[in-house]
Amino acid sequence: MITAIWDQLKGLYSLIVGMIVTGRYFFAPQKTVHYPRKVVDPEDLAAYRGPLELTRGKDDESRTRCISCQMCAKGCPGNCIKVVKGTEGKLPSTWVYDFSLCCLCGACVEVCPASAIDFSHRLYLVVTSREELVMDLLADLKERVAANPLKPAPDVPAAAGQKAADAPSAGAAKNGEV
């Protein structure tokens, strides 16, 4: 009889302890990022692997650094890269990437001798069909360049003032959504 009562009390006590713990967390700050009202801190995304993107050229930032060497296409375990060499020097004429086959392993990024590709941090990518996952990265690069031309091509003279005005906004855009 006494043990039965004692058991009940012990059970009640462990329940109360549990309730106190839960109650405290009722008022604790949340860790959930309530998208779309909030977005993930870009600093946390520094190493995040989103779909591939072509990096901008060293001298001419509107161009790709790719030299069409095919190392990435050969090393890719998913066969998701197709690079075709164009007529203009070593530059590629086609750079198509199938994100639906990509396992984000990083082999292509690591093997590229020209550091021409990198993972983007596009976390909020949404598409409605599989076809949209096949991305033309040259067009994508062109779009990004059009959105914020960091450094104009050397043969196009640009006003120094405009360059200075562009630089900070371009930098900010690169951190946030590229």
Binding site: K31, A46, A47, C103, G106
Partner: peptide, 18 residues
Amino acid sequence: EDLCDILQRVTGSRLTMN
């Protein structure tokens, strides 16, 4: 969640890490 954030920092992904 904390662990995923930490591991993502080096591995680049949160679940199927390579």
